[in-house]
Design a protein around this nucleic acid. Structure first.
Length: 816
DNA sequence: CTAGGGTTAG
């Protein structure tokens, strides 16, 4: 273990200072040791021992010396023993320190203080505190100025600190600057900045260290403003900032969003020659990174004389947090070239880089490295990082495994897992995790939890559950939080409660594009493209800059409302006025828009003119359009491109098969189906769900396992008969199996959504709103039943259909 | 001989 030497005020390790003198001492000690070992000389003068100790550079040196001193009977003297205790502790051998300590018969305060410091130095806080209380209970030694600062540092609980405070008052040591500053620091550590401040302001003399304690104390307790005020007082009293003050203040500026002050401090740093202090440079890197000022970061980093692990971690994190994972990785490589061992925090940043790069090879090596170091059990932050990494790459089962094996899960672990599922479209799994989380009484869901679960509820259309979260939000006064509110706008919007969404929207701070994108997107979703465009206009009037998501939402809106010209306009404005390069997703939207409008040729030419290689989603959009408009030839073209891309999406095969089936070309159907089977793809089953009595009931077509299945079937038969008598003729062209017309009707009649509606009718009183959700609703790709087909388009207010039974019936038969 | 205050995180 390396000798931990104290660090002097300017951050230069004493190691450097002592290195030159070390050689001299070593020569001296060699002669002394010879004398001791071979010449039978006794060490008589204390200065001899002193020199010997200073010459020790290895743990073995101390042990060797210890042995020699034991032989000569010196090891039990309190003076020599005290030095031995210190030396052993520098090399991490606390047990040897303790052994030496126990051998001493006449322990003085030096001996006790050294033993306490030995524990503190080696992070054995509870033993340090125990040792201190043992000392305090004795009558033969008195604590002095040196006793309390280290013990106060070691306190792990406020109770210890308070009783130590009483002892300090009894000994009359409370006016010592060191002791008082340690008290200030201790109270701040346990979150009692105010109590610390009362001690601080009554101190008759305050040195820089003491001011620093108070400033960092407020900062650590999330009171950066107060920290700034203390700094002003400090300057007013004529105390000069030192490197410690500067390092702390740079973090304060970052938290207060005060870039200007941070840069002024940087000037101060240069003027006073503090820029070569490691702490200061590290703090500068962190501050500039927080402000996204990456230009300044390499400057600071390259000018550093000494770089420690924090410097490397800081620069890696700087690029990682500013969405520059590749540069971050480059610094990680440079770190390895410089033979600096990565630590836990390096890996936290690294896993986030991997999550951004979505590189499956890195995932394994990063996780493997962390596992070999056993860091997952050591720190919750890294466990959460690994979960997030897997989730961002869409490997949710690995994420789940890591999550389950975490020895201790905090709120962020749960939030990460919920977000992981939700963002991979596995909303039901997200809800399941959330429900488990709620069972754990020790956990308090926070803002992050709400932001995680609300999109999942919105995805499932679980309005009631979402509203429960909303009430929770109101209870906790979080309604003004932009993130939560935007999620709520999204929830109400997706569930068709557009007026609620709008009124919420106007309560949110609308400075960024995110809330705008949400409100534009949910209107587009319900076929209200004109309204979406109006919101876009309003957005521009309020001076908010649209981003690529804004245009994606707009194009989607135009596509769903058949607003081809407006869509073309958006696509143009995006590139010319806002210099946003269209991505594959934008192209996909355009193709979808042309396709839905029946402009299949335009869509095809548009694809041909793309500057990049179209991916499966683009061809898929065209194929979907061919399915709607019954264009087999174009459909064949689109699908030949699609299957070339080796699409893993079963939906595309289904689409083509449906297209063939529509025209009765069953040989085509069989061909596509066997192709899909060969590639190991299986159709995602469609399901419909309904929320009843806080429970979500899911129905699959032909699924007979529901407890009320018989009843539903009976009622469904009655309703089907009734609507037929009202003049409804089933459009069997939507049934894509090669079966007799009777059977087709039967399949249609037992579609999952019908089962869900009947279940709703059976289990709710009249005039209750019945709201059904389908997993495949927004896609064109799956066989579509009359009811569901473009419920967003033709029946935009479907989700607010007041399901009176009669109206329900009308709805049942009305859409074709 | 022994002491306090500082920088990085999902």
């Amino acid at each position: 273990m390396q000798r931990r030497l104290p660090v002097c005020k300017d951050g230069i390790s004493l190691d450097y200072l002592s290195r030159s003198s070390c050689y001299l001492f070593r020569c001296y000690s060699v002669s002394c040791t010879r004398n001791l070992g071979y010449g039978n000389h006794e060490i008589t003068r204390e200065i001899d021992v002193e020199g010997l100790f200073r010459a020790c550079t290895k743990s073995e040196d101390v042990k060797h010396l210890h042995a020699l001193l034991t032989v000569s009977g010196k090891a039990k003297s309190s003076f020599v023993a005290t030095r031995l205790i210190n030396m052993h502790s520098y090399f991490g051998n606390v047990s040897l320190s303790r052994y030496t300590f126990d051998q001493v018969l006449d322990k003085d305060s030096y001996t006790w203080n050294s033993m306490i410091s030995a524990y503190v130095r080696n992070r054995q806080s509870s033993k340090a505190v125990k040792c201190a209380f043992e000392m305090l209970s004795r009558t033969d030694v008195r604590p002095d100025f040196h006793t309390f600062p280290p013990v106060l540092k070691a306190c792990s609980a406020l109770i210890d600190g308070t009783s130590l405070h009483c002892c300090i008052l009894k000994s009359g040591l409370e006016w010592d600057v060191f002791v008082a500053s340690s008290l200030v620091h201790m109270y701040c550590r346990f979150g009692f900045a105010d109590r610390a401040y009362t001690i601080f302001k009554d101190m008759p003399f305050r040195d820089t260290g003491c001011w620093n304690s108070m400033i960092s104390g407020f900062f650590q307790n999330d009171n950066a403003k107060e920290a700034l005020r203390i700094l002003d007082d400090m300057i007013l009293e004529g105390v000069k900032m030192d490197s410690v003050t500067v390092a702390t203040m740079l973090s304060v500026c970052a938290q207060l969003n005060d870039l200007l002050r941070g840069m002024l401090i940087h000037l101060f740093v240069i003027k006073h020659g503090l820029e070569f202090n490691v702490f200061v440079s590290n703090a500068l890197i962190n501050m500039y990174a927080k402000f996204g000022e990456l230009k300044c970061v390499p400057n600071v980093f390259d000018h550093m004389h000494v770089r420690d692990i924090v410097s490397w971690n800081s620069i890696i994190a700087a690029y990682e947090q500013n969405n520059n994972p590749y540069v971050a990785i480059k610094f990680f490589h440079r770190m390895q070239v410089n033979k600096v061992q990565p630590d836990l925090l390096t890996l936290v940043s690294l896993s986030s880089c991997v999550a951004q790069m979505k590189d499956p090879l890195w995932v394994k090596s990063v996780h493997g490295f962390i596992t070999r170091k056993c860091w997952i059990t050591e720190d919750i932050v890294i466990g959460n990082g690994v979960i997030d990494m897997y989730a961002k790459l869409g490997i949710t089962d690995s994420a789940q495994k890591v999550f389950e094996r975490l020895p201790h899960k905090d709120v962020i672990s749960w939030n990460t897992m919920i977000t992981g599922y939700a963002q991979n479209g596995l909303a039901a799994a997200a809800v399941e995790v959330y429900n488990c989380m709620k069972e754990n009484k020790d956990l308090k869901p926070n803002q992050g939890t709400q932001v995680a679960i609300l999109p999942a509820y919105a995805h499932l259309g679980a309005l009631r559950d979402g509203m429960k979260v909303h009430s929770q939000v109101l209870k906790e006064n979080l309604e003004l939080d932009v993130f939560v509110s935007t999620c709520l706008v999204d929830l109400y919007g997706k569930c068709g409660r557009l007026s609620e969404a709008i009124s919420l929207f106007y309560q949110v701070s609308r400075e960024t594009s995110v809330p705008w994108n949400t409100i534009i997107s949910c209107h587009g979703l319900h076929g209200l493209g004109e309204t979406s465009l109006k919101f876009f206009e309003e957005m521009l009037n309020e001076g908010v800059k649209p981003d690529h998501v804004t245009f994606l939402s707009l194009l989607n809106a135009c596509s769903h409302s058949g607003l081809v010209d407006q869509g073309k306009w958006c696509f143009q404005v995006m590139q010319q006025e806002y210099e946003i390069m269209p991505t594959l997703k934008h192209y996909g939207c355009m193709v979808d828009m042309f396709g839905r409008a029946g402009l299949l040729e335009t869509a095809y030419n548009f694809i041909e003119s793309m500057p990049m290689k179209p991916d499966a989603s683009v061809w898929g959009a065209l194929l979907g359009a061919c399915r709607i408009h019954g264009n087999v030839e174009m459909g064949r073209k689109a699908s030949s491109h699609l299957f070339e891309l080796d699409s893993q999406d079963a939906g595309h095969y289904v689409l083509l098969s449906n297209l063939y089936a529509n025209f009765g070309r069953w040989e085509g159907v069989n061909e596509v189906r066997s192709l899909a089977r060969d590639r190991g793809l299986w159709k995602t089953p469609g399901w419909s769900s309904i929320e009843l009595n806080n429970k979500i009931e899911v129905f699959y077509s032909g699924n007979q396992s529901h407890p009320q299945y018989e009843k539903i079937l009976e009622e469904l038969g009655k309703i089907n008969a009734k609507i037929k008598s009202l003049g409804y003729t089933p459009d069997t062209s939507f049934v894509l199996q090669d079966v007799e017309v009777d059977e087709k009707e039967n399949i249609l009649a037992h579609h999952s959504e019908r089962l869900a509606i009947v279940f709703g009718i059976l289990n709710t009183p009249p005039k209750t709103c019945i709201r059904i959700y389908k997993n495949l609703r927004s896609e064109l790709k799956i066989s579509i039943d009359i009811i569901i087909c473009s419920r967003r388009k033709e029946v935009p207010d479907i989700s607010s259909v007041r399901g009176m039974h009669v109206q329900g019936l009308a709805y049942f038969g009305a859409v074709s």
